[in-house]
Amino acid sequence: MNRLTVAINAAVAGGNLLKEHYGKVFKERQKESLRDVVTDIDELSENKILDIIKKEYPDESFLTEESGLHDQDSEGMWIIDALDGTVNYIHGIPMFCVSISYWKNMEPELGVIYNPISEDLYYAQKNLGSFLNQKKINSHLLEINKNLCVMAFSGKAHNPKERSKEFELFGLLNDLSQGCLRTGSAAINLSYLAEGKCGLALGKANKLWDIAAGIVIAQEAGLDVQFKITNKENFLVDYIAGSSEMILELRDNIDISYLDT
């Protein structure tokens, strides 16, 4: 199977596992902060996904949320978040997903995001386009004040003393647009952007595995994704994504220098 096919297969398999256990009691443990938790389901889902991918591509490198970096010195790397939106999952809010991406020489090649509750399967590959289930998805152009925005906040790995800057940015976006949302899943944020449900997606010090797939999906939907890995050790990324026109409009109206893109 080619990589996109494997990624789709693995994402849906992982997602089906999440759906099977959704709403049931399970063990959780806190990682770096109140928002940063992991459940045994994260790990089950990740193992399932890794089994599928490693069967086809055993010699490639992996970066996953739970297992970390498994570097086999290969040109390409699979970047996996088996459950993005864990807190939502625990609390029964159906906004979570599996996110699988493949990057080559640290350039995004393909991405798959699957929400098993809404049954939204987003997938994209460089130069192939971006899709949601049957449909091809493309960006649409509207002004910021006719759009929603979505923002993903940093975790404890980032300097908490600067958190107020993020809240300020969120507030400014909220006032500039029809509203700014915090969905709890950066992957879903970028999927919604690609689909046209919102006009801008931003993130400060997000984990690479949360956004790796969404970057490709948004790019292949015709959007501009400006991102930078600001902390290589912890795989933290700042990004702004939207149409080029909307990003320019944003920069004209708000000081977003806090985001290092």
Binding site: I8, Y123, L128, G129, Q134
Partner: peptide, 12 residues
Amino acid sequence: DFHIKILIDALD
């Protein structure tokens, strides 16, 4: 709809 091939190959 070329992507039907991708999906039939990928999914159970």
